[in-house]
Design a protein around this nucleic acid. Structure first.
Length: 560
RNA sequence: GGGCCGCUAGCUCAGCUGGUAGAGCAACGCCCUUUUAAGGCGUGGGUCACUGGUUCGAACCCAGUGCGGCUCACCA
């Protein structure tokens, strides 16, 4: 870059001298070639975040990147943005040669506040309201709790997209009194914490407020009132459901928990978190990140992590909302049915976190696959683009890979073409793959893509895209003599298909129409009706090649 | 009310630490005696929301205005 800038300047100088016009070298010429020399090349957001972390946190033996959500419902694709954002930054740090601890916190000691719609045994679940979700039974599968069911559902699938964090279960930690020290510190700073929180509240916290909440050991519910703290480890509370009172020792009790706004900074300090992003609900002034930033400093004596705000993910081309309230949730499994793992990563790596984007299930799917393939061609230098764009796309490609970048460019079979091939073979993925010479890695990638294509065709594609080759069981189409003669002529051409290429076959088809004095349009619709039982179809010449000589002949023979 | 984000071609958007405004689709045109939902080639099209400022130079940085969206001020 520097060399080229200098070279250009030199050429400008030479041409200026040659023309004898000294005024050609004006200020703007000087600046134009000076300033870019100082300019850093533009970097991917994950890399610039990684740099920011090392800059702000200084050189460390290990950096801690944290992510976490509440498993109080099925984890949807919006939540996934949290995880993948951290994963990409983790990878960027590791690419800088840094050692990174990637932790993922399951907030499974949160309260079960309402029963999600469409849950089996809703009445049973009803009885667990106000208890921690880790104690709520799993009524869908056979996990030990509602929380665990949601956790495992995600944990099992994350490795497929290259995300393998260290999981931390907050319920387990709280219930083993692991955070006793952190809770005590909060109690010691009770007044300061209240002051800070009150700055952003409309109604101030009451005088008798304590920065801790308790799940009654009599009922497991959080309908309790903290009565006193002895300044050491003793906490006294009253269970409002039973009226009973109890004093517990923070060092060996399972019932005390910090409220979210205090819990978060406590954990930052406990784990030494260097980076943690958050959704926009946390990132407003007066939001929980804001108060946590102050609390971690003033109460726990630590610095807040580097952060950024990520926006929501919309869903396009699929009924139902992303949220769990509608019952139909779009989660990572649903997305992976349509998109290959590296393309799921590509979607998130290619979009800056702070902008909203949609995951599409409609026709956009075709474009996304084309975009990914283009990105891949640019990475492997098969498609030429400007240097700036090449650098950018290449980095996105690297970050999109689940593991290592392939050594050679994978065979690219366009998604759209796969859709046709699969329909010709009635969804038989192996039959389609069998047409290609593939090594193991290619076979795996293409197999995934083929399964996605079949899923898309059968579940989401517009009716226009769907067809199936007519077989012996399908009803014969009524034809007149003219149409039959056209089919006979076509059969002749198909029999000598090896002599044709797509173009010559196309020409031959038009010749047939002209000779028979039939409108090409009618010819096409006739052929489509007998081949796939529809009025229209993919471009015919290419389609005949794709279907193959034998299959086409078998169908034609029914009519001649 | 506070905060954040967005406003770029007819549409969807890219362009992001300042250096001659881009892509896809749409439109229009041309091509093969030739287009059916996927052909090839080409063309046109933008006061980068607005007003100021900084700068040799601003879509980009700063201040403000307008419009749209989200979010916090309960809980997590």
């Amino acid at each position: 870059m520097k060399r080229f800038a200098g070279l250009s300047l030199l050429m400008d100088l030479v041409s200026a001298l040659g023309s004898g016009e000294s005024s050609v070298i004006d200020k703007s010429t000087i600046y134009k070639y000076n300033l870019p020399i100082m300019k850093k090349q533009n970097t991917h957001w994950a890399d610039s975040t990684a740099e920011k972390i090392t800059r702000q946190k200084g050189e460390k033996e290990q950096y801690v990147c944290a992510s976490g959500i509440t498993p109080s419902g099925t984890v949807h694709i919006g939540n996934f943005r949290e995880i993948i954002s951290v994963e990409l930054v983790v990878r960027a740090l590791r690419d800088m040669g840094k050692d990174v601890r990637f932790i993922y916190s399951w907030d499974d000691y949160d309260v079960f506040r309402k029963v999600p719609k469409n849950m089996p045994q809703a009445e049973l679940l009803e009885t667990y309201l106000r208890k921690p979700i880790t104690l709520v039974p799993d009524t869908r599968y056979s996990y030990s709790s509602y929380a665990e069911a949601n956790e495992k559902e995600l944990e099992q699938i994350l490795p497929q997209v290259g995300v393998e964090p260290e999981y931390i279960y907050q319920a387990q930690r709280y219930r083993s009194a692991y955070y006793a020290e952190g809770i005590r510190t909060a109690l010691e700073h009770r007044d300061r914490i209240r002051e800070i929180l009150d700055e952003h509240r409309t109604t101030p916290l009451p005088e008798d407020w304590w920065p801790v909440s308790v799940f009654s050991s009599f009922t497991d519910r959080d309908n309790t009132t903290v009565l006193d703290w002895d300044g050491q480890w003793g906490l006294t509370y009253r269970c409002e459901d039973t009226g009973r009172e109890e004093t517990v020792d923070l060092r060996d009790c399972a019932v005390a928990k910090l409220p979210w706004r205090v819990d978060w900074p406590m954990r930052w300090s406990h784990e030494g978190v260097d980076f943690e992003p958050a959704g926009k609900d946390h990132h407003s002034e007066g939001g929980s990140f804001d108060t946590a930033r102050r609390l971690v400093k003033e109460v726990y004596g630590a610095e807040a992590p580097v952060t950024f705000q990520y926006d929501f993910v919309r869903i396009k081309g699929r009924g139902g909302k992303i949220s769990s309230s509608s019952g139909e949730v779009v989660g990572l499994p649903e997305v992976l049915e349509i998109y290959q793992p590296e393309i799921v990563r590509f979607l998130f790596a290619g979009t800056r976190p702070n902008s909203e984007f949609a995951i599409s299930f409609d026709l956009d799917v075709l474009k996304i696959y084309e975009d990914y393939d283009k990105c891949e061609r640019i990475y492997f230098g098969v498609q030429e683009v400007g240097e700036k764009k090449r650098a950018k796309e290449s980095r996105i490609y690297e970050l999109s890979q689940v593991h290592d970048v392939p050594k050679t460019m994978p065979l690219q079979v366009p998604f759209r073409h796969l859709c046709n091939l699969l329909q010709i073979h009635s969804g038989d993925v192996d039959a389609v793959l069998g047409q290609y010479e593939l090594n193991r890695e290619q076979k795996e990638r293409l197999g995934q893509r083929a399964r996605c294509a079949w899923n898309w065709i059968t579940r989401y594609s517009p009716e226009d895209f769907r067809f199936h080759l007519q077989g012996q069981d399908d009803p014969r189409v009524e034809l007149d003599e003219k149409q039959r003669s056209v089919l006979r002529a076509l059969k002749v051409e198909v029999e000598k298909l090896v002599e044709h290429d797509e173009e010559s076959l196309g020409t031959a088809i038009y010749d047939i129409a002209r000779d028979a004095e039939i409108e090409p349009k009618e010819l096409f619709s006739t052929v489509y009706r007998i081949l796939i039982g529809k009025e229209k179809g993919p471009r015919l010449a290419g389609f005949i090649f794709t279907v193959g000589r034998e299959k086409v002949l078998r169908i034609l023979e029914r009519y001649v």
